[in-house]
Amino acid sequence: MKVVMNKKVEFQDLGNMPYGKAWDYQTELFDGIVQTKLENRRRKDRGEEEIPTKNYLLFVEHPHVYTLGKSGKEEHLLLDQKGLEREHVEFFKINRGGDITYHGPGQIVGYPILDLDNFFTDIHKYLRLLEEAVILTLGDYGIKAGRIDGLTGVWIGENGDPNPRKICAMGVKTSRWVTMHGFALNVNANLNYFGNIVPCGISDKAVTSMQFELGKEVDMQEVEKVLKQHLSNLFEMELFENQQN
C-alpha cells in the first residue's frame, strides 16, 4: 500500500542558536525521517500501511561561525586557533557538500529537512528551487540576482559584471532522499568576517549583503516572511508553524 505524498512542512523559527546545537537538532530530525523510511520498507514487505514521513523548514541565526564542508580545504580558513579565539568565532568541519563559509548575526540560515519522496527525487531541481526562492525574494526588494554557471548559490552581477558577488551560499547533504543543511542569505551580515576565509573556495569573487546593496539595514523578520512564502510556493508546501523557544 503506497503512502500519498505528504507536503505538510513544519516551520520552526529557532531564533539565535549556536551552530553546534542547531546541527545536533537538524541531525535528530533528519535521522527520525530516515528511520521512518526504513520502517516503511519493512512495512511494505509485510503488506502493511506505511507511515507518512515528516518534513521541516528551520530558520535560524547563528553566532559567528565558520563551517567547512566535506569537499573543502582547511587552508581556506585564514585564521589559526588563536585568531579564531581573538575574533570570537567557532569552527566546525561538517558533513554537507561545498567548501568553507561563514554564518553570523544578520544572516538568515535556512535548513529544509525534507523527504524529497514527498516532492520530487531530483537533487539538481532541489538546489535550483532553493536558489530561485532567494532570487525571487531579492527581486521583491529591487535587487536583481541570479546564478553563475558551475557555481552553486545566488549571485549579484551574474551576467558579464566585472564584479560578481555572492549574496547567498548553499550546501546540502542528502541520504535516502532526505535533505539537511541548506542556505545562508546575507541580509545585514558583517561582511568583514568573510575576509578571514576563501568563501566557498572561490578566491576571485566578492561577497555582499542586502544591506550593502540597498545602502540601508533591512528588516530581517520581513525578509524571512517573504522568503518563506516563496519556498512554500515553489515546493508546493503546506506550511504550518511551530515556534521554538
Rank of each mutant, 00 (worst) to 15 (best):
P162F: 10
D117M: 08
A184M: 04
D219M: 14
H76N: 15
G97L: 12
H103N: 10
I51V: 04
L136C: 03
H103L: 02
F11Q: 09
L79C: 08
I148V: 13
I94M: 01
V226C: 00
I94E: 05
A189D: 00
S71C: 12
L151S: 03
F59Y: 12
T53E: 11
Q229P: 10
I148F: 08
I113A: 06
H230V: 03
E49C: 00
W23L: 13
V34I: 15
D149M: 11
D149K: 15
K166E: 15
H62P: 04
G195Q: 14
I100A: 08
L78V: 01
H124D: 11
P162M: 11
P164D: 03
L58K: 01
V3M: 06
L79V: 01
D117C: 10
E50M: 11
L239S: 02
K37M: 02
R147S: 11
L77A: 02
V178C: 00
W23C: 03
C168G: 04
G150F: 11
F92Y: 15
V60F: 01
G97Q: 10
Q229V: 11
R147H: 12
V89Q: 10
E158T: 02
Q211R: 13
L151Y: 14
Q244L: 12
N163P: 03
E50N: 00
Y193N: 09
N16P: 02
H76V: 02
V187I: 14
K166R: 15
I135T: 09
E61T: 14
H76W: 02
V65C: 09
K7G: 11
G150K: 09
W177H: 05
N190S: 15
P18H: 08
V207Q: 10
N190I: 07
V218L: 03
E48D: 14
L234F: 07
Y126C: 06
R41L: 14
I94H: 01
Q221T: 09
F11T: 07
N233A: 13
G47N: 08
T27A: 07
I51G: 00
L136H: 06
N95Y: 07
S175N: 05
N55C: 04
G69V: 01
N159D: 15
R46A: 12
E131A: 08
E10C: 15
L57Q: 03
A189M: 09
L29D: 04
F91Y: 12
K216I: 00
F120G: 13
D13C: 10
T121L: 07
Q243L: 14
T27Y: 04
P112V: 01
G104S: 13
K21W: 04
T27G: 07
Q35S: 15
F235T: 10
G182M: 05
G106C: 04
S175I: 00
W23I: 06
R86T: 06
F91L: 09
N6T: 09
Q221V: 06
T152M: 03
Y66N: 05
